[in-house]
Design a protein around this nucleic acid. Structure first.
Lengths: 148, 148
DNA sequence: GCTGAAAGCTGAATTAA
DNA sequence: TTAATTCAGCTTTCAGC
């Protein structure tokens, strides 16, 4: 897997903003023909640089109005893979990561409402050997970007 | 803006997984013709249900290996709009939200390395009237999903 | 949902560096 | 050899019905 050149970076930036843009459109912006763009995109897909193309959906419009970050504190040490296995089947958990500091993991949880969030937290806590958890509920989203 | 029906939800689920799928492919999965799918997608774009199409890029492959959540504690009360204005021009801040609890806001920050993170935190702290901040550095990502 | 014209995709052949 | 472009045939898009 070769390093990305400047053109690759520009193609990624384009795709991050407009994932459904045609190769010809992208080509125009980066000064390349459509087939050349496609070849680079295919290569980045093969190399795993591009993981997938997705859609940003307005959560409110779909009725998921409640959002929280959950700090999780475990009993003793637990292997990351065990934590992943415990939470991967809980759809409300959209992201999970092990972290430094006093907490062992941080979860990003989406729910339809507070009642739903409470119920999801219950499932999260009972799915692994958790000592305690601390929920930080989102009041309003200020910034949301695809990439730096 | 009408409520979404079950077919809309299935189209959104498809697009969340494969944003570059053709309308015909999506139509096959939801039992609809390609033009019918396009009409629904266009409507959801107009209604703001679909915000945009984007690309999930492997952060490591692009050389952004360091990630942190930052709890921010402010002096007194600051209007959310002020916080947004303070951070929106810092590209390393990929998301920011005001929150309940002892902290006033939580930021999701990406950086190339620890040195870069430290430097970004410096800019974040000096951009608003911040009392103190608490950084939670990500060790490993366990789960990352587009939606619940 | 169907149809047909316009636009886009993509492999092969070709050329430039 | 590596990477871009042009060309051709097939697929997709999308407006009108």
């Amino acid at each position: 897997m070769d390093r990305l050149d400047d053109t690759d970076e520009r193609i990624l930036a384009e795709l991050s903003e407009h994932a459904r843009a045609t190769f010809a459109e992208i080509g125009q912006r980066v000064n390349l023909s459509a087939p050349a763009v496609k070849r680079r995109v295919d290569r980045m897909l093969d190399d795993g640089v591009i993981r997938r193309f997705t859609t940003v959906v307005d959560r409110n419009a779909v009725g998921w109005n409640t959002e929280a970050f959950v700090l999780v504190f475990c009993h003793g040490t637990i292997a990351p893979e065990r934590l992943r296995a415990a939470w991967v089947d809980i759809p409300e958990v959209v992201s999970a990561a092990t972290v430094t500091g006093t907490a062992d993991a941080i979860l990003h949880v989406l729910a339809r409402d507070m009642r739903h969030l409470e119920e999801a937290l219950e499932r999260i806590r009972s799915s692994a050997d958790i000592e305690r958890s601390e929920s930080i509920v989102v009041l309003s989203n200020l910034i949301e970007r695809a990439r730096p």
